[in-house]
Design a binder for these strands. Structure first.
Lengths: 234, 234
DNA sequence: AAAATAATTGTCTAATTAACAAATAATAAT
DNA sequence: ATTATTATTTGTTAATTAGACAATTATTTT
């Protein structure tokens, strides 16, 4: 078997930062670590990369194992490689962040991992450098969601304008003018107004919207100011 | 020595995408690969990660070895981990992209690597998945430079407004209105107008500008539309 | 039927962007 | 020396977008 001549071979892992939104807070899914050392401590979901899978494959597998679901929005965040980051052995970890609709997926969470959702502003301490990883993921989520329509991944297929606004307000920890927010979202032409209303949370009721899937997949990359720099810096 | 119980340990490398600007074209620095297989083929500069260094350390080292310089602008791009990406053995590579001022650094390039600058739109084929890596780097450069003042890293300490404009035009492969470009750049308050002019390339001469280092390091993260979405999509 | 509530639509002002035009400073040509 | 030339710099205006705030609408509760 061919090999390069150097002697350094390291353990290689993925860690997933899983965001969810319950209509109130932005949340993060963490688990109780199942292996020693630090068994039982809070940790990001992760796993080692096998000989026959890429990091993407591994992250997809880990997400599937935990939630039972495919097709979750996921993207690579960053490779963490500090020498001492894992106390067991030298391990490089590629972090992925994922967005899921809590309502839909909660039921299917595997109990093997003892998973738990925590509000993003009230997280327990995590093992190793996972706190840093989460911090970077929060930054990137804010950064990217200001320019691309990715927060829709956190909502159910049908959602109302006030729900969408609350989500943006949770992510950016600020408040928006409802009139201007409404217009801005509609100006993307990414939303389809449905015929029925959500009567649950107000007297008047709010119309449901759904993503125009075609425009969504096309327009995802084109960037648009979903959040003004003014609000982004608050 | 402690170890995790799995059996997968991989080779782990960094590759550097080094951009430069010669006043005319945006260019990429590549080398002739020094080891078998594919010795002599064009390749990104890279190296394996040692037992006592992080990926950042390794990338810094590789850049220093090639150019003789520290303090080069550099950031992590992406981790490439496809199983078969390296024909020798399973190797994960973390790619970094770097920006340097060609004029300043050319002289110090180490000849050991047989380095060469190619215009970004006229690159030779590169080994392994390096073509993909470069493509992603170009995308990210465009993306980031539209929002953050990072192209200054490609210019000498003193530069004129037309030079700066030509650089932006090279990166985005488009043209800007000189009047509006001027104003937009000045509106950042990142530039200091110097007293002397560059007389080389025009009769009237163009005033030199330099970065206001303090504001630059502060304002780097705050995002500003250096390139309108209209021009970015051309 | 009136009041209350929250969603939706409307209006206006300010700020920004984009297109284009004019003025300016230096050199080269007559 | 004067004029022409060239590229930089500054100026003007129209069009678009963002932001603040007000009015209207649909529904439920009193």
């Amino acid at each position: 078997m061919k090999r390069y001549s150097h002697e350094n071979r390291f353990s290689f892992a993925v860690d997933c930062i899983i965001f969810g939104y319950d209509g109130e807070d932005l949340k993060l899914l963490v688990i109780e670590r199942g292996i020693e050392p630090l068994r039982g401590h809070w940790s990001l979901v992760g796993g080692f990369i096998g000989a026959h899978e890429s990091a993407d494959d591994a992250a997809t597998r880990v997400l599937k194992d935990l939630t039972g679901l495919d097709g979750i929005y996921m993207e690579q965040l960053y490779a963490f490689s500090e020498v001492e980051r894992d106390s067991v052995e030298r391990t490089i970890s590629v972090a992925y962040f994922a967005l899921i609709d809590i309502q839909k997926y909660t039921a299917q969470l595997s109990e093997d991992y003892h998973p738990a959702w925590f509000p993003i502003n009230d997280l327990p301490g995590l093992i190793f450098d996972h706190d840093d990883i989460v911090e970077l993921a929060k930054e990137k989520l804010r950064y990217k969601a200001a320019l691309h329509p990715l927060l829709f991944e956190l909502l159910p297929q049908k959602f109302t304008m006030p729900q969408l606004q609350r989500l943006y307000e949770a992510v950016y920890d600020t408040e928006f003018d409802k009139g201007n927010f409404n217009r801005k979202m509609l100006s993307t032409h990414l939303l389809l107004k449905l015929k029925d209303k959500d009567k649950g949370s107000s007297k008047k009721g709010a119309f449901y919207y759904a993503l125009d899937q075609e425009r969504y997949s096309q327009g995802f990359k084109s960037f648009l100011n979903f959040v003004s720099s003014q609000n982004a810096n608050k």
